[in-house]
Design a protein around this nucleic acid. Structure first.
Lengths: 347, 347
DNA sequence: AGTTAATATGTAACCGTTTTCATGATTGTT
DNA sequence: AACAATCATGAAAACGGTTACATATTAACT
């Protein structure tokens, strides 16, 4: 007497789709079609299957789908931080657009740590992604190697680099910063200070500084090295930045900051020192956070439309995944917003 | 003469693992073991397989892995926004902790939209997750139904609910807010205003209001309905909130805000109206953003250690996934930070 | 050496979908 | 009415791994 040899390692026949198929009295193939090619199924069957699926709260298993279709519909985003409205809005926008297209976003936050970025890209690849969003251009070569080796489409963002071999969607840090510098020179300023991220680890900051330097040079001006302060990202650091700057160069009349947080920190410090802004000192930021318009005086800054950048980035990456021709570099325009922290140089 | 009926829809025998197996002269089972249970394979074979895998740049296919192991090592987080330092830090902390444990985080941002949350939970389940992090307790019942039906462990965060049947890790909004109210009453205030999120769609806001109401009631005070202003999240809305409040009740001497952004907006409005804070009006926030300590006067607020909450949440969810007993409710302590926006009630 | 226990490997079922091909049911054409 | 063309459905083979069980091999005792 032989029992049916039960070799199964798990209960069998559990496939959600099979239950739906049984409930609707059709084959699994038909159920699959109802969801993926509804037009190829007769109205009657479609309704019956839909009803059965509903009743059973059927949700297709993604691992099975992924395996069968050979794509994961998942996209990774490697970003330095989300505790900064600019990146937060960027990620939000990415998530919305990619989500609408049926992709989910996997986040890797590296806090400006390049080695961590390498680790994260490796883990993203292992976890199986269809494409990846990067911020900025400068990073460990290994990241590019890994991505290319595994044939994963990727897109640089927050940076506009038409000359790079990699596609990009972003704004022109160089142009934005030089526009700001030009405006301050038009107001008669000659003694400048710069407070920005450490540019060694941040190519965007570096580009901004280049923009400023170049713009000043055109009118025969320059920034003394001691007037170029590099500080990490926080209001407090902006304060420290201005303090350091004024210690070294008390005659400074205009300060260009790499982002609004540093700028607002600097503004607070100026106010605490009873410096009148903009009468004694002009301050200019970069990003245009909501806060910039709410403090008083309002912060003059360079507006960066991050949400738009997110949409364009998502759009572009989706084209890449589709193998549809995509724009190699998309430039998101920046805009100088003049408010109350800037004015004519003191006489 | 019959040809071998070729029914395959794709080229066959492509499984990366099979190539490795062939190259190393072993079975696929052995290759799998080399990667997942190396101790069960002899040294000699292990080396041979490892070499073959290396030579072929073998990376296991995650979809196949997921399908066969029935877990994805992916965790979803459904949060209202990341454009708020509190949530940004929370998510950052989650991502770090989960990442260290080999999980990736999939983000769903719903902008306080409950219907969107339902959609996102559905899409998360579809995309295959092992567990999920939720914020707050109140939401569409459907979310809970879906999660339970699909047997997905989930954890409520940002909320401490020992009495709920669902596990939670968070702070006590009720206690935090009543502590703040008590402090203001100790300062002699009697005419209160509240500016918070719309509590209908936010149980945390509701709990805070309950805490305040209860705390006031203990001393025979109450908040008139027209002094309870509900506004969405932004500095500008905080301004509008205070404007509305003072229109309805110009004699208000203390304002409790549901978060620092609303509170700082209210502070800006007060300053613009030349109300002296805290002499004429006391303002208190909730969250303790960096900005709260930097503006002047510094904002009195309730500190919420979000980063710690993120770690504990990650930790707890991992225990749940492991089926190791986990704490049903973890309370993250809040702390009243007294700064310059609060003081004795005007005489 | 003979028996037993432990260890290493192979075989094949299974995870839950998608899709190719075959078949059966309809419809349209003359 | 006969035949072809179209449409709807089903059967079963993939997708690339993991793992229960069987089997072959080696080590460990009497």
């Amino acid at each position: 007497m032989t029992l049916p040899s039960s070799k199964s390692r798990q209960q069998s026949g559990t496939g959600g789709i099979r239950q739906v198929a049984k409930a609707a009295g059709v084959s699994t193939a038909t159920v699959s079609r109802v969801f993926n090619h509804p037009d190829s199924v007769s109205e009657k069957t479609r309704l019956r299957v839909a009803e059965a699926a509903n009743k059973l709260f059927y949700i297709p298993d993604s691992a099975a789908k992924n395996l069968s279709s050979q794509r994961s519909r998942r996209i990774g985003a490697l970003i330095p931080t989300i505790d900064d409205s600019i990146f937060a809005r960027f990620v939000t926008s990415l998530q919305r657009e990619l989500g609408d297209a049926g992709y989910s976003l996997i986040l890797g936050i590296n806090e400006f740590d390049e080695d961590l970025e390498v680790k994260e890209v490796r883990s993203l690849i292992e976890s199986g992604i269809d494409g990846i969003i990067l911020c900025g251009e400068r990073r460990r070569q290994e990241v590019y190697d890994l991505l290319e080796r595994h044939n994963i489409p990727f897109l640089l963002t927050n940076v506009y680099r038409p000359a790079s071999k990699h596609p990009s969607v972003g704004y022109d840090n160089y142009a934005g910063a030089s526009k700001a510098a030009a405006y301050l020179m038009d107001q008669g300023h000659e003694k400048f200070g710069v407070i920005d991220f450490p540019s060694l680890s941040n190519d965007r900051a570096e580009r901004r500084v280049e923009g400023i330097t170049h713009s000043l040079a055109e009118r025969g001006l320059k920034i003394r090295p001691e007037c170029h302060i590099e500080r990490p990202f926080s209001f407090e650091e902006g304060r420290i930045g201005l303090r350091t700057l004024l210690d070294h160069a008390p005659d400074t009349t205009a300060v260009l900051c790499g982002n609004d947080v540093l700028a607002i920190g600097a503004l607070f410090e100026a106010q605490e020192r009873n410096l009148s802004v903009p009468k004694d000192l002009s301050i200019i930021g970069f990003d245009n956070l909501e806060l910039a318009s709410q403090i008083s005086p309002g912060l003059t800054t360079v507006d960066v439309p991050t949400t738009a950048m997110g949409s364009r980035a998502a759009e572009t990456l989706l084209l890449m995944l589709d193998q549809t021709p995509w724009p190699h570099a998309t430039r998101i325009p920046t805009n100088l917003i003049i408010r109350g922290t800037t004015g004519p140089a003191p006489v």
